[in-house]
Design a binder for these strands. Structure first.
Length: 639
RNA sequence: GCCCUUGUAGCUCAGCUGGUAGAGCAAUUGAUUUGUAAUCAAUAGGUCCGCGGUUCGAAUCCGUGCGGGGGCACCA
């Protein structure tokens, strides 16, 4: 005689044991229709799960995240069913729900094609139309293993073998012919899935995520509660594609890549202007924060990298170079050893600490070819790097100062939403564990003091110390990892850095590594996508284009442009033999923030007519007022 | 690095089952002197990614290398 308590506190008494579906029917017809899944005392269960005892329940529909998740999970199952029906001999492995959808990994010799996806979708649709019933069974471990082995599903058997002994093994049947080992829960029948799904792509994926294992074929799909949500999602993807920095970079003539140097950027005039603006800005910020800028060699003797530990721990990613007399040098993958060498030059006192040295250092890392991705993952990049040499007592405070600076700079560049990722010691590392203990404690303390949201990534620190990474969220809700702050008790000692302490003794300083943009290249990629190429005025690579109405006004336009440049604003005069409409279209596509039109009216009144990007309003302004107004707007704080 | 996919003019792309290439935009030349998103006309432009093979004949088929894209792995 269970008493069922609903989320609103109301009770329903039942004479006999009861299922979620029966409870839903008792509450209302429409709920019974919409119900997908139930939670019983906080645990998600199938709707036909039998409740015998008094319970607190909640029924979920497609409007709830829990409901949507089950829809996606069932869609993955139905996809696997369709695949095995269409392509006998294909083995199933795992098929989890992911953000916006699901995937399923299959083992099959022949590759799946785009055409296959359409066929599979069609078959899925048929299975959904048939509304096949779901049934749950509990199997004995031995039975399950031998059964899956017998039918040639060696991956399933392997999965079961790795499930702990005390766990219940549930098998879900969808209809009479297909079943899969699964924790569940699932919908009562395939018809509940609806038709708001789409198979999106096929790719390779290693069995159990390990690159030493064989490669399986993964089919990705997206799934939603209704067609409206599905279409909204597809629309979002389309919008994101329009912002693709590789596409915009080409259209806006910012940079290009070419075969001769995969993963290295050929910066064009405008892209380089943007690059330099970011450096100028950062230089100003760092100067105010007490950093001293240095510069160190790009090519350094192998012996230094052996001493620092890079040769051993990072060698696989390093470019090397052999001189005609057969000496081995490495092209720097990091700036830290060079910077420590600068610190080492001359005697340092505790009174000098903290010493903050910044360097816009270009580093080269031989990344796997498959990792390369436009500006976001390159083989040669410029870090806005800095190294802070300090005492142990100063760590937490200095970390906080760095964090404040980072947040201030992200805000200036349009990113207000920042979270932290804290990573501790990796397997491949240098230094004793008690040193790591100290470094981790100090950094975690700083993380907590920022009061920002943070996550902990076990074992993902740098080989010389723990780190935090700064993740920022862009205009369309995507997360990007940019800045980093690392505490290092190892490298300074390895490279012989020291200062004279109060007691006259030599001590090894602690080193904080930090980069705010991380990589200038990558950060520019993120900026392009965040702003969809429409940069704020101050950072725009070409801020103004002056357009004379006809060649009669060329001279005036040239003069105007010159005066604009005198104010430190970039400007180009378009004297080409094209009409005004043509030029407006051309420069609007190039996403120039301000077009300045000059004709008789402007010459007579010493003014310009402004057309702002994405506006067709005409705004006439006295030239001197224009210069005054926009030179005031030409800085980060006016963002 | 691994799986799949892809590589034609400066750019975006067309070229069915093999018969040595086309369009639009851009460029050049000429005409038009223009007031807010493409003025008109003419001309020129190609090692069809490289190498090898099949074939009387390859942009097209096969092999291989390199590059791009989507994932996986990697991201110190």
């Amino acid at each position: 005689m269970p008493t069922i308590t609903l989320p609103d506190g109301n009770n329903i008494k039942f004479q006999n044991e009861v299922t979620g579906l029966e409870i839903a029917e008792k509450i209302s017809k429409s709920l019974a229709k919409q119900a997908l899944i139930i939670s019983v005392n906080g645990e998600l269960k199938d709707l036909y799960h039998i409740i015998k005892k008094d319970s607190l329940i909640k029924i979920f529909t497609a409007k709830d995240p829990e409901g949507l998740e089950v829809i996606r999970h069932d869609t993955a199952h139905i996809m696997a069913m369709a695949v095995q029906e269409l392509y006998p001999g294909t083995q199933v492995t795992i098929g989890p729900v992911i953000e916006n959808g699901f995937y399923y990994d299959f083992a099959r010799k022949e590759p799946f094609t785009e055409d296959d996806l359409k066929k599979i979708e069609k078959r899925m649709s048929e299975i959904i139309d048939k509304d096949v019933k779901t049934r749950r069974e509990v199997w004995k471990r031995e039975k399950a293993i031998s059964h899956f082995k017998k039918i040639g599903e060696k991956y399933k058997a392997e999965i079961i073998e790795s499930i702990p002994n005390n766990e219940e093994l549930s098998i879900y049947h969808h209809g009479d012919t297909w079943y899969d080992l699964c924790r569940g829960p699932h919908l009562v029948s395939s018809g509940k899935i609806g038709k708001a799904f789409k198979l999106t792509k096929v790719s390779g994926a290693y069995w159990r995520g390990n690159s030493k294992n064989e490669m399986l074929q993964r089919i990705y799909g997206t799934g939603w509660a209704n067609l409206k949500d599905l279409n909204a999602y597809l629309k979002r993807i389309e919008e994101a594609e329009k912002r693709d920095h590789r596409k915009l970079g080409k259209e806006m003539d910012l940079f290009h890549f070419r075969e001769e140097s995969p993963g290295s950027v050929f910066w064009h005039e405008k892209g380089w202007a943007l690059f330099q603006k970011l450096i100028d800005y950062m230089r100003m910020k760092q100067d105010n924060a007490g950093y001293k800028e240095i510069n160190t060699p790009e090519v350094l003797d192998r012996a230094l990298w052996e001493k620092s530990g890079h040769w051993e721990k990072f060698g696989a990613n390093m470019y090397t170079s052999i001189t005609p007399d057969e000496k081995v040098f490495a092209i720097k993958p990091m700036n830290c050893p060079g910077c420590i060498e600068v610190f080492n030059q001359g005697l340092k006192s505790y009174k000098d600490l903290p010493i903050k040295m910044s360097e816009f250092g270009k580093v080269h890392r031989y990344e796997p070819s498959g990792a390369l991705h436009g500006l976001l993952r390159v083989r040669a990049f410029t870090q806005d790097d800095a190294h802070i040499f300090c005492t142990e007592d100063q760590i937490t405070k200095e970390c906080l100062i760095v964090t404040d600076l980072i947040l201030e700079i992200y805000k200036d560049l349009g990113f207000e939403n920042v979270i932290l990722k804290y990573s501790d010691r990796p397997d491949l590392r240098v230094g004793d564990d008690n040193v790591w203990d100290k470094a981790e404690t100090a950094l975690l303390e700083a993380v907590k003091a920022t009061k920002l949201e943070y996550s902990i990534n076990k074992g993902e620190g740098a080989f010389y110390g723990p780190k935090i990474e700064f993740v920022l969220r862009d205009a369309i809700g995507r997360d990007w990892q940019c800045g980093t702050l690392q505490v290092d008790f190892n490298l300074p000692g390895r490279l012989g850095a020291s200062y004279i302490d109060k007691d006259g003794q030599k001590k090894v300083p602690v080193l904080l590594h930090r980069a705010l943009f991380g990589s200038l290249e990558r950060f520019i990629g993120i900026l392009i996508e965040n702003y969809a190429g429409k940069f704020p005025f101050w950072i725009s690579p070409l801020q103004t284009v002056v357009i004379p109405i006809s060649d009669e006004f060329d001279n005036y336009a040239i003069q105007v442009s010159k005066k604009i440049k005198d104010e430190g604003i970039s400007s180009f005069v378009d004297l080409k033999k094209h009409n005004l409409n043509y030029k407006i279209r051309d420069h609007s596509h190039a996403k120039i923030p301000l077009l300045l039109i000059c004709g008789k009216k402007e010459v007579d009144s010493n003014s310009v007519t402004i057309r702002r990007l994405d506006s067709n309003k005409q705004e006439n302004m006295d030239l001197n007022l224009f210069l005054k107004t926009f030179s005031a707007l030409n800085k980060a704080s006016s963002n």
